[in-house]
């Protein structure tokens, strides 16, 4: 099991830190560094990115040594559905209006749950959209059309 790196908790965490830190450093090369006295916009991020890489290397090596696995399964399906429902909401709200965006969001996100009952989701979507319309559009007076584009 020791060499199953794909599910090695610390190896993956370290890898993620190195990737993000490395990306930060690489991008920051386009920003002027300046000196310690007059730091340019690239100074602080370069240092932070490097530190993150160092932590990443440590965590990664530790993971290879300990070989601890990620607990439980990865919930890729619910994660993808939840993320999709949010993106869909953002995409639809200024094209079709708030209510259609919310209904779409409810249906897609409800698929992420363990059970999906069509009638229940429909009722929930209708009730909650009406509630949201009441609070955000009528209560807080946010200028979102309920139906139709901006």
């Amino acid at each position: 099991m020791k060499f199953d790196l794909r599910n090695n908790k610390d190896f993956l965490a370290g890898l993620l830190f190195i990737l993000i830190g490395g990306l930060a450093v690489v991008i920051a090369r386009d920003y002027p560094m300046g000196s310690a006295m007059r730091m340019g916009p690239g100074y602080f991020p370069t240092i932070l990115g490097s530190i993150l890489c160092l932590f990443g290397v440590y965590v990664m090596v530790r993971g290879i040594v300990s070989g601890e696995r990620v607990k439980g399964e990865w919930g890729w399906k619910p994660l993808a559905l939840i993320a999709l429902s949010i993106v869909l909401f953002g995409f639809l709200i200024d094209r079709l209006g708030m209510i259609p965006a919310l209904v779409a969001m409810f249906f897609v996100s409800a698929f992420a749950g363990r059970e999906f009952r069509f009638k229940e989701v429909l009722l929930l979507a209708v009730l909650m959209s009406a509630f949201a319309a009441g609070v955000f559009v009528y209560g807080l007076k946010l200028p979102y059309p309920l139906f139709g584009s901006f």
Binding site: G113, L124, A132
Partner: peptide
């Protein structure tokens, strides 16, 4: 949870 997502997104 869909309601939480609704409030968060709005």
């Amino acid at each position: 949870f869909p309601s939480i997502i609704m409030f968060s997104s709005l």
